[in-house]
């Protein structure tokens, strides 16, 4: 195997991971324009079992999360593979608090198209679905 190619792949993956980190930084700062700008015009966002298609719907999703005071408590890992980046994180929100859920482990899988998110999938990671209750 040509080590140069390996190195290029690694550099690309690092760049992808850095891009995704910057997206989550924007999310943490409730920076709506930056968050929405991270997506392609025809992007799709899957949230648990729901689907948000297009930038307008994706903007609405971000507004709803900010209104629910969704906070990223920590990012456990960011790993990339080809054009997708997987992020394991732990979140808390006003809405989760209402259900007596102090925090929730989640996973985001983001498929990139160049330097934008083409598809995002956010979902809880249920090891123990009632952990924290």
């Amino acid at each position: 195997m040509d080590p140069t190619i390996d190195q290029n792949v690694s550099v690309e993956q690092e760049a992808s991971a850095a891009f995704v980190q910057s997206y989550f930084d924007a999310f943490a700062a409730h920076d709506l324009p930056r968050c929405v700008d991270a997506y392609t015009d025809d992007a799709t966002l899957h949230f648990v079992a729901g689907v948000y298609s297009g930038k307008s719907a994706i903007e609405e999703w971000h507004r709803e999360r900010f209104a629910a005071e969704l906070q990223i408590l920590r990012i456990d890992s960011i790993s990339s593979n080809h054009d997708s980046v997987t992020v394991d994180l732990v979140v808390a929100s006003k809405r989760l608090q209402f259900f007596r859920i102090a925090n929730l482990a989640g996973r985001g899988v983001l498929r990139l198209d160049g330097s934008k998110i083409k598809e995002a999938r956010f979902s809880p990671r249920f090891c123990d679905p009632f952990e924290g209750w």
Binding site: T44, F47, V48, A49, G50, V51, Y52, S53, A57, W61, E64, R95, F98, F99
Partner: peptide
């Protein structure tokens, strides 16, 4: 509260 969760998750389709 349960409806609000549904509205933001499985009630969302590609068509709205």
């Amino acid at each position: 509260p349960l409806g609000a969760v549904a509205r933001d998750t499985w009630m969302r389709t590609r068509d709205g």
